[in-house]
Nucleic acid binder design. Structure first.
Lengths: 148, 148
DNA sequence: CTAAACCCTAGACCATACTCTAGGGCAACC
DNA sequence: GGTTGCCCTAGAGTATGGTCTAGGGTTTAG
C-alpha cells in the first residue's frame, strides 16, 4: 500500500503544490516513483514527512531541512551530524520561545491598560505627553486633531 | 532632544533601510520631520516603535501592525478596536506557542534516539523497515547502498 | 568653501516559500 | 475509444519583508 500525492496532501495539510515544491527542493529524496513516474509515498515516507513538517513549523529553513534529510539518507554514519543539527535547532527554538514569552507579556500589559476602566484617561495622558514632546521640539503634531 | 534615523537603528537593532521601509508601509505616521525633511524621533516615538517590534517579533503582519498604529493615531476612541486586535493576536501567539511546544517534544524525542547508546541500532532498524517497505511495493530503493 | 558624513526619495532588486499555468501522459469507467 | 480525473515537469507568478542603488540635499569640521 502506497499513497498518492493527493492523499498525502490531505493527510498532512500541505498542498500538492507544496509537496512537489519540497521534492524539487530536495526534501523528499526518499519518495520513490512507480512505473508511471508517479510519486508513491510509503508509510515510512509519511513518517519522515512528518519530521519535515515538524522542523518547518518550528522555523527551520528549507536548506537546513534538506541538510538533515541528506544526513538521514546517508544512514547511521551521520548520526553525530544529525544530533548536532537538531541540538542547534532546539536551542534556536528555545531562544525564540523565550523572546516570544517576553513580548507576550508586553502585549498583556497593553491589554490590561485597554481593558481597565481608566483606559481612556491613561491613553489620553500618553497622547498628551507625546504631543507635548512634538511641540517642545518644534515639530508638527502628527496626531489627529481632536475637534470638539 | 530627538533622535536621527541612524541613532534609532542602533537603539532598536533595525536597519536604517527597515525603518524607512516601515515608514513607507505606513507604520510610522507618528514620526515628524524637522525643517530639513529629516525624520526626528522623539522618546515617545521610540516607545511606539518598540511596540511595533513587539508585534512584529511575535509574527504580526505589517498590514495588521499598520491597522493597530492607525487606531493609535485616532486617539482614545479606538480603544475597543485596539483591544480586539491585540486579543486576537494574543490568542494567535498562544496557539503558535502550543504548536511549537509539541514540535519541540518531537525533536527532543529524536534527539534522545540520536544520543542513546543504541542510536546506531535503532537508526539501522528504521532504515531496514523503510527499505523493506519500498521493496514490498515494487519500488526502487532510494536509500544509499551500503558497501561493505 | 569644500569634504565627509549624514539625510532624503523613488524605485530596482533579493530571498524565501510557496502557488499556479501550460502542456502533456496515465488510468478507469462507460 | 473517449471523457474524466488524476499524475507529471518546467517555469512563470505572487506575497512578504526587507535591502540596496542612484541621484540629490544638509550639516559640520577643517
Amino acid at each position: 500500500m502506497t499513497y498518492t500525492i493527493k492523499e498525502v496532501a490531505e493527510k498532512t495539510g500541505l498542498s500538492i503544490y507544496t509537496l512537489r515544491f519540497y521534492d524539487k527542493q530536495g526534501l523528499l529524496p526518499f519518495v520513490s516513483r512507480n512505473s508511471s513516474g508517479y510519486r508513491a509515498f510509503t508509510t515510512g515516507d509519511l513518517q519522515l514527512l512528518k519530521t519535515i513538517c515538524c522542523l518547518k513549523d518550528t522555523g527551520m529553513k528549507i536548506s537546513d531541512i534538506r541538510q538533515y534529510i541528506t544526513y538521514v539518507m546517508q544512514g547511521p554514519s551521520s548520526i553525530p551530524e544529525r544530533r548536532t543539527l537538531l541540538q542547534a535547532h532546539q536551542q534556536a527554538i528555545l531562544a525564540k520561545q523565550a523572546a516570544i514569552q517576553k513580548n507576550l507579556q508586553e502585549i498583556e500589559f497593553k491589554l490590561n491598560i485597554y481593558t481597565s476602566p481608566e483606559a481612556e484617561t491613561l491613553v489620553n495622558q500618553e497622547l498628551a505627553v507625546a504631543q507635548a514632546e512634538k511641540i517642545a521640539n518644534d515639530l508638527p503634531n502628527p496626531f489627529q486633531a481632536k475637534n470638539a
